[in-house]
């Protein structure tokens, strides 16, 4: 038997779902454990920064990094881990596309903190300080990054495995390939060429959408395409590695897998598709006001279309000079 592979898991700005997903593979975890030694896993062990620093270059065979690049510390860690790892896998949508936290990019770091700590909606409390002096000396906190960017903009990434979180079936397929030294960089990216629609079992018609409705206002037919029924479903613009898990149980796709392979900008693709078909019936008779009315039914387009992929999109973050 060949030597066991050394693997590590690291989480950046994350909800923890990705960590749980690793355990979600049920008994397969026994097979995995048989093949690997987990040498670094802050969530389960208690390693120190120094321990990582002490590692040899390329000591870790496969390093799984999840979560978003939300703090300076994340950047410092992933840069260090890159040195120590032969292969880095961006694990989960946050590290691949920026993830849900990426929507914070529509604001600035300062405003996020301001909103989080000073507005009336939250309890009064101390505003986080970068450093504070205590008896024992100076304590420092890592600073928030200006914007969230995909992991690959910080370090070289060998493989991408989006999903919020990646699902057991994805992992089942992924682990053997990722553990194989022969797998070329980028070769094993678990981003589908096709969208959620490809795997979605719902009955679809030619798209003729009058306007969008909030999901709570529609009695959804469980057999029929959700978007056809006038409820926003991101399925058409979202990579489909999920067996359409959400639409199948009657929940519209929220776009967690990010764009289909080789599509740069999930949000603009979806907006273009939707705007083209929505309210198209009888468009030649519609007044400009009526058209605007239809468009208003698409609430918060940026938030809806870029829910998981703003940092990997063309614009990436709120970057113009317009006041909020």
């Amino acid at each position: 038997m060949s030597e066991k592979k050394k693997i590590g898991f690291y989480w950046c700005g994350a909800c923890g779902g990705c960590q749980v997903s690793i355990l979600d593979i049920d008994e397969m975890i026994l097979d995995v454990v048989e093949q690997v030694d987990i040498v670094f896993w802050p969530c389960a062990m208690d390693p120190k920064y120094e321990d990582v620093e002490a590692m040899e270059e390329n000591e870790i065979d496969v390093m799984f990094i999840n979560g978003s690049m939300r703090m300076e510390e994340n950047i410092e860690m992933v840069e260090l881990l890159r040195e120590k790892a032969k292969k880095v896998v961006a694990y989960g949508s946050c590290s691949v596309n920026g993830g849900l936290f990426g929507l914070g990019n529509l604001s600035t770091k300062d405003r996020l903190l301001e909103k989080g700590y000073t507005t009336k909606t939250t309890d009064e409390g101390p505003f986080p300080q970068r450093s504070s002096s205590v008896k024992e000396g100076e304590l420092t906190l890592p600073e928030l990054t200006e914007h969230i960017v995909p992991l690959e903009e910080i370090i070289d990434v060998d493989h991408h495995l989006p999903g919020c979180p990646p699902l057991p079936n994805q992992l089942e397929e992924a682990f053997p390939a990722l553990l194989d030294d022969e797998t070329e960089v980028g070769k094993y990216d678990l981003v589908s060429d096709k969208s959620v629609c490809d795997v979605c079992p719902m009955e679809r018609e030619e798209k003729k959408i009058e306007k969008l409705n909030p999901i709570q206002n529609v009695y959804l037919d469980p057999e029929e395409c959700i978007l056809d029924q006038g409820v926003l479903c991101m399925g058409p613009a979202t990579a489909g590695m999920c067996d359409a898990a959400c639409p199948e149980v009657g929940h519209p796709c929220v776009g967690c897998n990010g764009p289909v392979k080789n599509v740069k900008d999930q949000g603009s693709r979806m907006s273009s598709a939707l705007a083209s078909v929505i309210g198209a019936e009888g468009e030649e008779k519609k007044t400009e006001e009526e058209v605007m009315e239809v468009m208003k039914s698409i609430r918060d387009p940026t938030g809806s279309f870029y829910m998981f992929s703003l940092p990997s999109s063309i614009m990436q973050f709120r970057r113009g000079d317009l006041d909020e």
């Binding site: 969208s195 679809r204 399925g235 058409p236």
Partner: peptide
């Protein structure tokens, strides 16, 4: 190879 049949 890329069409997912969304019918858009």
């Amino acid at each position: 190879d890329r069409c997912s049949g969304c019918k858009m």
